[in-house]
Simulated assay, not measured.
Amino acid sequence: MNALPSGGVIPELFRGLFDDAAVFPPGNLPLAEAVPAHRAHRAAWYAEAVGPFLCGAGRLGELAAAVSAGSASAGAAEGGAAGADDSVVAGDRPLKVGLVLPGGSIELAPALAAAAPFELAGVELATRDAAKAVAALDRLLPPDVPAAVELPRELLRGDGLDAVLDVLVDSPYRAKFRTGGLVAEAFPDEDELAAFLTGCAQRGLPYKCTAGLHNAVRHTDPETGFEHHGFLNVLLAAQETDRAAAAAVLAERDGEVLAKAARALTDRQIVVIRNSFTAFGTCSIAEPLGDLAALGLLSSPSPLHQEDR
């Protein structure tokens, strides 16, 4: 049985799970606020849970300006000004950025050039043609940079899912699946998500998710009525290769049931799960951590404040 560490240590099950999507909907945090907030996350006790700062290709110039302004302010506060070489440095290291390319392969080359001052942690490429996206990534992406390929959900239904996953499994790239959005239709039901998860599991294909997974447990949002998947549900379902079994895990709404299952995971199961479900984008970092603490799956040495979100 896996023993969950205490005293603020991030369990292996959750390390690097939360990509910082603060500037994306529904959070929409201004970059001038999101950059220092990300710096604070990377310096906090829970830093091992935090992935890269996600930024759309069209906002890289704005991001560089925000980082430069923050560095200049920090330098002035310490009695000196930040030099030109420090313009995109967060603290004493370049800002780790995950590039999000909603416009497809055509954005890749200019975005890679614009991202040169940052530490490029990955690329997420939206497309309607998986083979074309793979070819562009093969041609342009540096070999040490990971990438994920996202196709519209309507192309992943029926035989379309198998066709896309078969293209990706023969590549070095992950799949990406959208689990929510700003309208009810943006949220896949349990069976649709289970089809994606088990299709990837059967092929040994890693993936990330995005949108709608701020909370650990499946629930109905009381304000919108949207049905949100829980990221803990997805983690536990990631080890399933049977679609019905995965759907049942995704449908579970009892946090204590999910927490008990998480505590019972072996080290080997955790490796399998995290080799499959690698990360998800969240506009809040404190909210998912707070859920884990409330379920007894994370021991926090200090409170998670609203300003950490």
Rank of each mutant, 00 (worst) to 15 (best):
L292R: 08
S71L: 09
L63D: 07
A195T: 10
R157N: 07
R157D: 14
A65F: 02
G75V: 10
L101Q: 08
R309L: 12
D162P: 04
V145L: 05
P102N: 02
L155Q: 15
L29A: 13
A147S: 11
E62G: 11
G180Q: 08
A115N: 07
G79L: 11
A245G: 07
P172C: 06
V271A: 15
S300W: 00
Q306S: 12
M1Y: 02
D191Q: 14
C200W: 11
L112M: 03
A126S: 13
P288G: 02
R263L: 11
L60N: 05
A194K: 07
A136Y: 05
F118K: 09
A237F: 00
A44V: 01
A84L: 13
A82G: 14
L258D: 05
D162M: 02
P102I: 11
S71H: 07
Q306E: 15
D86F: 06
N275Q: 15
P110Q: 07
G212W: 00
P30W: 12
N28T: 14
F226I: 01
H228F: 04
A114W: 03
D221L: 04
E256K: 13
H38C: 06
T220E: 14
E190M: 01
P146C: 10
F18I: 05
V272Q: 10
P11R: 05
L108C: 04
G80P: 00
T220D: 12
S105I: 00
A147D: 01
A84R: 09
R218N: 04
D191W: 08
L235N: 10
L193T: 03
A261P: 03
A244C: 02
R42T: 11
P11I: 07
A186I: 01
T198P: 08
T266L: 06
R139I: 00
E62K: 05
A57R: 01
G56T: 12
A114I: 02
L292F: 04
A37S: 14
A216G: 06
G58C: 04
P30A: 09
A245M: 00
A111E: 03
V234N: 07
A22H: 01
V183I: 05
P146V: 09
W45E: 05
F231S: 02
G290Q: 09
Q202K: 15
L258C: 04
R128G: 13
A293G: 13
G83N: 03
L17V: 03
L250I: 08
R15F: 10
G104E: 10
G122I: 08
A82E: 10
A186S: 13
A216N: 06
P206Y: 09
G122P: 06
D291R: 00
D138T: 07
P110E: 06
D86T: 09
K132M: 02
A77M: 07
D291I: 01
A115H: 05
A148S: 15
V23H: 07
A294F: 03
A57H: 13
P25S: 13
A148F: 02
D308C: 03
R15S: 08
V272S: 02
G79A: 11
R157F: 01
A245F: 00
G79R: 11
G225V: 13
G83M: 04
S6R: 15
A64G: 14
A113E: 15
I285E: 02
E223S: 12
A163S: 14
